[in-house]
Computed example of a mutant assay.
Amino acid sequence: MPKIAADGQHLTVLNLFTTDTAEKQEKLLAAMRQIVDAAAYEGWISSTVHAGHDKFGTANFIQWRSTEDLDARYAGDEFKHRTLPLFGEITTSIRLLQNEIAFTQQKPALNGVTEVSPTRDDYTAIELFGVAEADQEDLVDALGASQEYLLDVPGYRTHTVLRGLKARGIEGKFVVVYSQWDSKEAYDAFRTEAQPDRVPDRLKVDARVQALRTWYDDNTYRVVHTRSAGE
């Protein structure tokens, strides 16, 4: 099962697709499963496919050995002439995000490990934050180390902050938060908590993030398929 660690050993890619119907989401998932199950690319480590929950779409959390290995994949005829055109037919947007893991945090019961797998029951949120280049590190800190208060939030399991390196489908710098929760109910309760009920640490972080971000987008997911090299 793929594990997330801020150890600098892997390039982490998030391929995010949106679409407009449940039928197209199922087509996306089928195509992604087929690609993942056939993957034998130099430097590819693992892929974990997510099905959109709150909005139609998919996410693929991919680990690569290096940027050079990913660039070779993108330069190949299969990707340029089969994969991208196929996804272009059934999506409303395509974002291919290259990142490095900047921070991870877990509930103590998870023993410092963040794992992504369809055998788990995580309710997963992926949030995208646009940011000015000069503010990217401040936003990484605000979304990561400054959010220790989350450990006391009911239903919270883990969150990971990814520093955006470069992307297709996004202009400028960005930061991604990948978080895992017990349930949709727990996540929604956290997101919709009234301002007067929020702890002071959260209010400070919320204000800091709001001041730093230039745009925001999100969706929630369930993990449906994974495969690693050698399986």
Rank of each mutant, 00 (worst) to 15 (best):
M1H: 09
P2A: 03
K3C: 04
Q9M: 14
T12D: 04
V13Q: 02
N15T: 14
N15S: 14
L16P: 01
D20A: 05
D20M: 03
D20T: 14
A22R: 15
K24L: 15
A30F: 09
A31E: 07
M32C: 06
I35V: 12
I35P: 01
V36E: 02
I45N: 07
S46W: 09
S47Q: 05
H50I: 09
A51K: 15
A51R: 15
H53W: 11
G57K: 07
G57C: 09
F61A: 06
W64K: 01
T67F: 09
A72I: 00
G76A: 09
D77Y: 14
D77T: 10
K80Q: 13
P85Q: 01
L86W: 10
T91N: 03
S93D: 07
N99T: 12
A102R: 10
A102Y: 05
F103H: 09
T104S: 04
A109T: 06
A109H: 05
V113L: 10
T114K: 00
E115H: 04
E115V: 14
V116Y: 12
T119C: 05
D122W: 10
T124F: 10
A125G: 14
L128H: 11
G130K: 08
V131Y: 05
D135R: 12
D138C: 07
L139F: 04
A145W: 06
L150P: 01
L150D: 00
L151G: 14
V153S: 02
G155M: 01
T158G: 05
T160R: 05
G164T: 00
I170E: 00
F174D: 00
D188I: 14
A189L: 07
A189R: 08
D197G: 06
D197T: 13
R198C: 11
V199N: 08
P200F: 07
D201I: 13
R208A: 08
V209D: 02
A211V: 05
L212K: 05
R213G: 06
T214G: 03
T214F: 09
T220R: 03
H225G: 01
